[in-house]
Design a protein around this nucleic acid. Structure first.
Ligand code: FES
Ligand code: FES
Lengths: 161, 161
DNA sequence: TACTTTCCCAACTAAAATAGTCAAGATTTC
DNA sequence: GAAATCTTGACTATTTTAGTTGGGAAAGTA
């Protein structure tokens, strides 16, 4: 599997979107600010998420993104796949040919592991995450502009705002 | 998690070692040949495996490597950890500080996923793998010098052997 | 219309990680 | 002492990651 910040950011951003459902379209600038992710990087990720219909977009002032379907119907595995390509851990990517065009000794092990991970992540929806107490707590912290010095340092403070 | 060829090779090599248990020390050259792995790369990996006591070594002619403990007692997770450092999927590596020194929205998700993977891989021993039919089949193929042209191409044919 | 806000897209890049190679040396056996 | 084997560390090409840069296109607002 490949689990990098790309996949992590995508899930975080989608969760942010889910948490602000009902407030109309959410701008990437908002998400970038709240979650501490680079705006341009988010644009890249959302380009992929949109192609998979995981999000819907509205352009122009007042525009932004919203979930492409209900939070209950969006699974973490989908989100990661959308941006990270594959969660496969085999070397042959399922082709059974990584050693001289034949199956290597450990193919089945990696294949089983992939299924394990795949099943796990595809049984957790954004709604499931939203229902978790720990997630609610972090979301509240982010909501209340509970901003400390380190945040200001990192994100950059627009003078006078 | 990081699952790269490093971890895959390590497990494959350890399994090869387990499969040839009882034939005395196995040379890395043999493993390299059978499994199609670069000898120098194997040396690097075994250096780490030895430091974790997963293998024992004997130098000189007739020397080689053998398992550091019984196949039943060596778990896949150990092998991967030995060469790949960590199977953690959190960004903060357990420190709960990846967003402005506080826990990010998705920490628990990655933490749970890591545990899932960790548990899975630490419950499969080399012996378990050896007992699998598919593994036996591949091992037999490798054993019988069932070598086709593509193998000769890849490994390089010592003239006259 | 002009202006602003937002999404959209493709190309570029610095830094890190991966998958090795290479060269030298230490032990042991014959 | 020669050969086989492990042992170690430094080096390197390639790929991947995590972005940046710079342009545009659509939509609302005055
Ligand atoms: S991982 Fe599929 S054949 Fe080796
Ligand atoms: S992954 Fe641990 S705080 Fe974000």
């Amino acid at each position: 599997m490949k689990l990098t910040t790309k996949g992590r950011y995508a899930v975080t951003a989608m969760l942010d979107l889910a948490l602000h459902y009902g407030e109309g379209p959410i701008t990437l600038a908002d998400i970038a600010q709240r979650q501490g992710i680079s705006l341009s990087y988010l644009e890249q990720l959302f380009s992929r998420l949109r192609r998979q219909s995981l999000v819907a977009s509205v352009r122009g002032p007042g525009g932004g993104y919203s979930l492409g379907k209900e939070a209950r119907e969006i699974f973490i595995g989908e989100v990661i796949s959308a941006v990270d390509e594959n969660m496969d851990t085999t070397k042959c990517h399922g082709a059974h040919n990584c050693q001289n065009n034949e199956r290597c000794l450990t193919h089945d092990l990696w294949s089983d592991l992939s299924n394990q991970i795949y099943t796990y992540l595809n049984n957790i929806s954004l709604q499931d995450l939203m229902d978790r107490k720990a997630v609610r707590e972090v979301a509240d912290r982010q909501e209340h502009g509970d901003v400390d010095a380190s945040l200001l340092d990192q994100v950059g403070t627009p003078a006078g705002v």
